[in-house]
Design a protein around this nucleic acid. Structure first.
Lengths: 302, 302
DNA sequence: GGTTTCCGTTCGGTTGTACTGAACAATGTC
DNA sequence: GACATTGTTCAGTACAACCGAACGGAAACC
């Protein structure tokens, strides 16, 4: 009978590509991964990996076993889900990955209602960037990811994950309070061409989308501040030091502290959650998603 | 992630009923089984077993997990099968359980052809009684069982096993060589009512069937010899010490050393093999079955 | 009712093996 | 050619699975 831990390493290898990455991902030493995969080859009786260059490559049998192993790990998780489903109380622990700017105001309210409705449910939250978050969900580091998607910037598709849209969050132009209102959205955006901008750091989807927005309006934004934290954006804009783009969710129903103007074509980012398909039926996941939807509906009456 | 070894213990418990039986079947100590199942309950987070009387009983969640675990173990085996299928050479090892009287002349020829055709295939054979053999196949102690079935004596059905009929083996009445031939089969049988009989030990299907046969012919056999080994039967009969019932397969194509007479209704036992359905597609199993079929066809041109 | 038998659990003690860190060879990159 | 990265090997370690023995409980036996 094949060892499941070793199969998990094999699957992780198919995702990450190198033994070192597997070691990091599963927090083992390289040595351990190497030894365990060798042991797996001995168990199976056929070579699964070929050393090529300074990396490794799967043999045909290796690929076959990866496919099988994925199914096994899924079913292993399904077992836990099935047991949880047969229970009345929602229990266990859900590990949520949050892309920083996605959640913010959504999460406190969600966690609050979960705590009162399902006291036996333990929720863990860790912030991370969306790419590692998504593969992290695939690798069972997290059970649910709360992420965002900007218009025209689709994320790589993970076949083993589902995707539930939580809310559409309007993005607006944020300027110093008291600025003269501009009737036309395009004019309002163009009027900022010489203003200093605050945007999220390069490499984020938000940043790429923002730059594209400005370029279609005919200018390159003068990015003077690269900050990840959106509350910092608000402060900079409020102080009149920069203009920026903010999602409505930042206010969480409060009255905004800066001046907001609509953008051309009224763009909206999508807030969605993803879970492994096998775990999507778990009461714990469903409970968290229900609470998220409640919170979103309350803050953003779509 | 649930521990598969513990799940295997749980599945075995569902088959055997008591922790002690599980410990025997998997050759662990009772202590270990108890500890591991407790650990499994801790992993799952809900009680799986209820102590009832001096045994244990599954909780609803326990039953759910058993069903899941069976699927997991199957898929775990399917992984090995899939890898083996992707290979050209037939390799690995097949553990065959043989019900003593079933095989005899069949097995040597089979093993011989396997050795020459698939040198990389390792075959292990252990003799055992049919009940332990069948549950042994279910529990993966054996991969294939070679068994027999006497007319009207069906075996308990194992849903997870398949069943392939190898041959129909005629049963005949065996007497001292040189006895006067009797034209009618019923008369021939009745003529033995005062003879000493050799039959297989009580509790075997063969024995039960033989007794029923005599009773329908109107007499109770005078069983003087209870012997498991069929070659001993032949010797006793040859020496004129007893009459008996012998399957044709005993001769393996040689000329019989005792006198044979047909029985009423020309009864035939069925020789069949059973394997786990998940493993039936494995090249190794298919190779063994092909060799068995060859041997059967050669010895018994049906 | 007492004895026996079979069950499952608990408790120390032992052992196997999965893991680590360091040193290594091989490959690719600057 | 120096350096970074990858995977392997090796000796040592630590954890957890396992065992034997002792125990408490429940049924079956006389």
């Amino acid at each position: 009978m094949l060892d499941v831990n070793r199969l998990r390493m094999l699957v992780e290898l198919s995702r990450r590509g190198t033994l070192s990455a597997v070691a990091d991902a599963l927090s083992y030493s390289k040595a351990s991964v190497s030894q365990q995969l060798s042991a797996l080859e001995r168990e199976v009786g056929v070579p699964l990996l070929r050393r090529v260059g300074r990396g490794v490559q799967f043999t045909p049998q290796g690929n076959v076993l990866v496919a099988e192993a994925i199914g096994i790990l899924d079913q292993l998780e399904h077992a836990e889900v099935a047991v949880a489903e047969s229970l009345t109380e929602v229990t266990g622990t859900v590990h949520i990955a949050v892309f920083q700017s996605a959640a913010h105001s959504l999460l406190p309210r969600t966690l609050d209602s979960l705590r009162s409705e399902h006291p036996a449910l333990r929720v863990e939250v860790t912030e991370c960037d969306p790419e590692t978050g998504l593969v992290g969900v695939s690798s069972r580091d997290y059970d649910l990811i709360l992420a965002e998607q900007y218009p025209g910037r689709t994320r790589p598709i993970h076949a083993d994950l589902d995707r539930v849209v939580l809310a559409h969050d309007a993005i607006v132009l944020a300027r110093r309070p008291g600025d003269a209102p501009v009737s036309d959205a395009v004019d309002a955006l163009r009027a900022t061409r010489d203003e200093p901008w605050v945007l999220e750091p390069a490499g984020t989807a938000s940043r790429a989308w923002a730059e594209q927005l400005c370029r279609t309006a005919g200018f390159e934004p003068d990015v003077r501040f690269e900050v990840a934290d959106l509350t910092a954006h608000v402060r900079l804009i409020h102080a009149g030091l920069a203009v920026g783009l903010l999602p409505e969710l930042v206010w969480a129903g409060d009255t905004p502290s800066v001046d907001l103007a609509p953008l051309p074509e009224a763009p909206r980012r999508e807030i969605f959650s993803s879970a492994r398909r096998v775990s999507a039926a778990a009461p714990s996941i469903r409970a968290v998603r229900a609470a998220l939807a409640d919170a979103a509906a309350h803050i953003l009456p779509d």
